[in-house]
Design a binder for these strands. Structure first.
Length: 422
DNA sequence: TCTGGGGTCCTAGGACCC
DNA sequence: TCTGGGGTCCTAGGACCC
């Protein structure tokens, strides 16, 4: 039997903030989303206080202040770097690793020396001592069961952070203890539907008929059912597959009324999206620009729109993409609205080498000139930091930029912000 | 004042073609 | 007036994940 381990960092963003501030140990910590909008990570103490995931900061402000909760704006440079460090430890000790998200990875623990449970405990201790990030490890015969085991490991103090469902004396007990909404692949909508049918937990779910599940939850639901029964449907993937669409968008710190500000933001987001595009070695032949007002402000006039701009030649050339996105945005912009958000989406992605050229293409000057230029820009920005070289269309100090009033230093990625030891 | 951002997959339905 | 049926492609919307 295959033994799949799921290594999951505990309260990842909150743990990252704590890694460099031992004085925060045992203190409640929360991390906020962009614009300091809502809570997206909580330490164990913050969960105990009762602050829910996604809680709007302004609504919970009194509770947070009263309990002396340490509050941080999100600092993705820091989290990304600590994530890389955790993953490096996994690659060093595990024969096969699949990075699943910034704070999770699947590892193959079949036939590891000393047995899966003991191996996982050593792995956990090593990650924690080398990176300062606490992790939990769940082991199951499928990814979905590994997820269930991981949840059990986190919530049951007696498991000490590692739980092997494949060698459990009573796996059904664990399934019965897992609410159906906590099964990987079953969200709140389907959970509600299932509970109406009397399905409360993972064990009830496992006993359902295949046809019924397929009819009510489509083939994705059926895959979840089979995985819970121990039949693997999701394989290990060596690296992350290339993205099929790339989105870059952001809410503004304040409502934006001016077209020029919106166009600057559009240029900035397009720059970000194009960077991601080149990083995965792709080119795009379609860019979509969209904007919207604040849908929570019921009394105010609402407007949202999007426009898709096909490109005659697939490209990853930032100026070409900015030109297309900005001209699209000019067309859908309407005066008189306070915009809350805008963004771009790149789709119809193809690998940069071996793309189709249209019959109308001139000799691809893209390759002759654009590619070396973009390579040089990327190299500078990787070496000296994001936006060392930027495009004039993005402006300098637009009022549309995000609020991040409580950001921790970028301890690990910027020299000036290194931790000082006195 | 203040309620994230970035993805994937599936299905239904319309447009269009023969 | 009558006006089938099958295929493909695209899009919007729903559901899910972290």
């Amino acid at each position: 039997m295959k033994k799949i381990g799921l290594v999951d960092c505990n309260n990842f963003y909150a743990s990252c903030e704590r890694a460099f501030r031992p004085e925060l140990r045992n203190r409640p910590v929360v991390v906020l989303s962009n614009n300091d909008g809502c809570v997206i990570a909580r330490s164990a103490e913050a969960k105990t206080i009762g602050i829910p995931m996604g809680a709007p900061y302004f609504k919970w402000r009194t509770v947070i202040d009263k309990n002396r909760v340490a509050v941080f704006s999100s600092n993705y440079a820091l989290y990304g770097d600590l994530s890389n460090r955790v993953m490096k430890v996994l690659f060093r000790f595990c024969p096969s690793v699949e990075i699943y998200s910034i704070d999770e990875a699947f590892v193959d623990l079949s036939g590891v020396p000393g047995g899966a449970d003991a191996f996982a405990r050593r792995l956990k201790a090593t990650v924690e001592s080398w990176t300062g990030i606490p992790v939990s490890i769940g082991i199951g015969s499928t990814k979905t069961l590994a997820k269930i085991a991981n949840r059990f490991a986190k919530k049951h103090a007696r498991s000490k952070g590692v739980f092997d469902l494949t060698s459990s004396p009573d796996p059904d007990l664990v399934l019965r203890w897992t609410p159906v909404c906590d099964v990987w692949g079953i969200g709140s909508r389907h959970a509600k539907k299932l509970r109406r049918e009397g399905v409360e937990n993972a064990l009830d779910f496992r006993l359902l008929k295949r046809n019924w599940v397929k009819k009510k939850m489509t083939v994705t639901g059926l895959q979840t059912l089979l995985e819970v029964r121990g039949l693997p449907c999701y394989d290990f993937a060596a690296g992350p597959p290339p993205k099929k669409t790339i989105v870059s968008s952001r809410s503004f710190g304040h409502p934006v009324f001016k077209q020029s500000d919106l166009l600057e933001a559009t240029a900035q987001y397009t720059t970000r999206a194009a960077e991601k595009l080149r990083k995965q070695g792709s080119v795009t032949s379609n860019i979509l620009a969209f904007l919207q007002t604040n849908r929570f402000k019921l009394g105010e006039p609402q407007y949202s729109n999007s426009i898709s701009i096909p490109l005659p030649v697939s490209t990853a050339h930032t100026p070409t993409l900015i030109k297309a996105a900005v001209s699209g945005m000019e067309r859908i912009f309407r005066d008189g609205y306070g915009y809350k958000k805008c963004g771009v989406m790149l789709s119809s992605l193809e690998p940069a080498n071996g793309r189709w050229l249209s019959l109308l293409d001139l000799p691809p000057d893209d390759h002759a000139q654009h590619t070396p230029l973009m390579n040089a820009v990327d190299a500078c920005n990787n070496r000296w930091g994001r936006d060392t070289i930027k495009f004039a269309a993005s402006g300098i100090n637009g009022t549309w930029r995000m609020r991040r009033e409580m950001c921790s230093p970028r301890y690990t990625t910027v020299w000036e912000e290194l931790l000082e030891v006195k």
